[in-house]
Amino acid sequence: MNRSTKRTLKSGKSGISFRQFPVFFCIGIAVPLVFPAQTQAQAPADKAWTVLQSGLSAGGGDKVTAVRVLGLIEKDQKAEQLALTALGDSNSEVRAAAAEALGQMQAKSAAPQIETTLKAEQDVGVIVSCARALVALGDPLGFGVYYAVLTGERKSGALLDSQKKMLKDPKKMAQFGFETGIGFVPFASVGLGAFKALTKDDSSPVRAAAARILAKDPDPKTRDALVQATSDKSWLVRAAALDSLSHRNDPSVIAKIEPSLDDEKTAVRLTGAAAIVHLQDVQEHTPETKPISKHK
């Protein structure tokens, strides 16, 4: 290599000098360190649980909502455990939401704990929510609460005397119904307008709701209570009781509810008429059971 070539390489006039190579090489190595590859986005389910956990960790209405919507997650041990934990919360609204969620998610294994909560509870909202959950889980204890709401009496072992007194108190039940909206769901011939016309001091929507739920209670004692409720002073309860008796498919009550055809309230007359026609059809299409003859 001659002197001119050495000078050219040293001065860098011919392009990239030797001194530039290590700099270029270092930059090439540094690029992936300065600009690392982006991390994978969080999976939708993981993000969803993060949102739910945030709501459960919050207070007030957000926690109540977060607990209640756990009911949408069926057959999931994590959701069930979170709801069970919430069932022991110091906030009665959270406890009520937890009971509702457990019933909605069909957490049958949670029935014993809901029963325990129900028997010790002193808040009307939580008591009724536990009862609703137990009914959804197929536990007959839940029907006992609704029986007490409708009749003011209690079935054996269903409630404590102090709890029965709460459910029997018209003012407390009216306030409970007004605040939670229980019973304010139209049924049969009773439209939403009828419920909106009721005052917040009226406990009949709660009792009407109880009558509707008792349609699924196979206890003959409940059947008799519903028949009696068809002559209740509240037309809403009378209509609900007739609606419930119709769904029970027991033709033996036809003669007992016939007076409803002359009720002063149109909605009651119409509900009674439809119930009787339906039960008559049930009777006609039910095959008679002949007694088994003994062979001599």
Rank of each mutant, 00 (worst) to 15 (best):
D89P: 13
N91D: 15
E93H: 13
V94A: 11
V94W: 12
R95G: 09
A96R: 07
A97K: 05
A97N: 05
A98H: 08
A98Y: 05
A99N: 04
E100I: 09
G103A: 14
Q104E: 15
Q104P: 08
Q104L: 15
K108I: 10
A110D: 13
P112H: 08
T116E: 12
L118R: 13
A120F: 09
A120Y: 10
Q122R: 14
D123I: 10
D123H: 14
D123W: 06
D123M: 11
G125D: 07
I127T: 01
S129Y: 09
S129R: 10
C130N: 15
A131Y: 09
R132K: 06
V135Y: 09
L137F: 11
L137M: 07
G138Q: 04
D139K: 04
D139H: 06
P140L: 04
G144L: 05
G144W: 02
G144K: 04
V145H: 00
Y146P: 03
Y147H: 15
A148N: 02
T151Y: 03
G152H: 03
G152F: 01
G152S: 03
S156M: 07
S156N: 08
S156W: 04
G157C: 03
G157R: 03
G157F: 03
G157L: 03
A158I: 00
D161A: 12
Q163Y: 00
K165C: 01
M166A: 07
L167V: 01
L167S: 00
K168E: 07
A174Y: 06
A174I: 02
Q175G: 13
F176M: 00
E179K: 06
G181H: 05
I182A: 04
V185G: 06
V185S: 11
V190E: 03
L192V: 11
G193H: 11
F195N: 05
L198N: 11
L198S: 13
L198W: 08
K200I: 04
D202E: 11
D202K: 09
D202S: 11
S203F: 13
S203D: 15
A208Q: 02
A208P: 05
A209Y: 07
A211T: 14
R212K: 15
K216T: 09
P218D: 11
K221V: 05
K221Y: 03
K221F: 00
T222N: 10
T222S: 13
D224C: 03
D224E: 03
A225Y: 01
